[in-house]
Simulated scan of single mutants.
Amino acid sequence: MPEAKASPDPAPDAAAPRPSRRGGKSRAQKSFETRERILDVAEQEFSRHGFDGVTLRTVAKRAKVDTALLHYYFDSKKGLFDAVFLRRAEVLNQDRMEAMDRYESEAGDHVTVEGAVAAFLNPVLERCANAGPGWRAYFALIGVVNNTPVWGGETMTRYFDPVIHRLIKVVKRALPSASETDLFWSYHMLSGSLTLTLAETGRIDTLSGGICRSEDIAAVTPRMIAYAAAGFRAVCKD
């Protein structure tokens, strides 16, 4: 596709909302803020009650908009759910892809399982450690979706498979004789650990008598990396 010629007097970014002449918000800005408010509310509702436990009417009431507006923006409840899931998935996937690319570039021929797993996990766990209510709700939602039969697996496949295959590819460099079967089973175990941690259920708090805390991501991170890396090596028997 040929490169477009630059205009001698480029127009302002059409996507950027323009303030009104009176200093108020533009229609585009108001529309964006309304849409984001709906997504924030839906994110909280889906993370607490799952897909089937949420209605568009409930989301509209909490977001203080008419239900018709949800149909206008998202068409259906499934459309709303997909928009909620995609909004932060794109951010997470970009962070993890960049981290793994950077690690591979820096490690050269000395890629390790620990390094690959750390590049995959750190962007998520760091964001979790510093997350506000929105990200915490989203991470809880991932836990719900990852453990939901039928459509849960399809949703995870659609949004997260590329970054998972990227991890497998990097780990394969560290364990060249590992079989695809063993690599994917090892990731399966890692996925369970990660989603349970992100859900912050409080189970470890009770089980340990308070010695361990679900929200202590600084304690989780090095342990999960070491645990997952050792698991990959033990299962793959490289």
Rank of each mutant, 00 (worst) to 15 (best):
V84N: 00
F85H: 03
F46G: 00
R62D: 03
V113E: 01
Y103I: 08
D95V: 01
A107M: 06
F120W: 12
R57Q: 09
E36A: 06
G79Y: 10
M100I: 03
S105W: 10
D52E: 15
L121R: 02
A99T: 10
R48F: 05
K25R: 14
K78S: 13
V65G: 02
K64C: 11
S105D: 15
F51I: 14
V111G: 07
V65P: 00
Q94F: 12
R96M: 14
V111R: 08
D66Q: 12
N93A: 09
D52V: 13
K77R: 11
T34E: 00
V124T: 15
E114N: 07
S76F: 13
Q29K: 13
L56V: 07
V111W: 08
E45Q: 11
T55M: 07
K25A: 04
A116R: 03
E106R: 15
T55C: 05
E106L: 15
V65F: 02
S26N: 09
Y103L: 11
E36H: 06
M97W: 15
E33A: 13
M97L: 15
G53D: 12
S26C: 12
I38T: 03
D82N: 07
F81T: 00
F85E: 04
L69C: 06
R127A: 12
F120C: 07
F120P: 04
V65I: 12
D109N: 13
F32Y: 09
G50K: 08
A107R: 13
R37I: 04
R87Y: 10
E36Q: 13
V41M: 02
R35E: 11
V54T: 06
A107E: 14
E126M: 07
L56D: 01
R48S: 08
K30W: 01
V113F: 11
L121M: 15
V41F: 01
M97H: 15
Q94P: 13
R96F: 04
S31W: 04
L121S: 12
L92D: 09
R102N: 08
R88C: 06
E114D: 12
L70G: 03
V65D: 00
E106Q: 12
R62G: 00
R48H: 14
A118K: 07
A63M: 02
V84W: 02
F46A: 03
E43A: 05
L92I: 12
S31P: 00
L69Y: 03
L69A: 10
L80V: 05
V41S: 01
R96K: 14
R102P: 02
Q29L: 14
V113H: 01
S26T: 11
N122R: 13
A60W: 04
R62C: 05
E98S: 14
A60N: 04
L121Y: 08
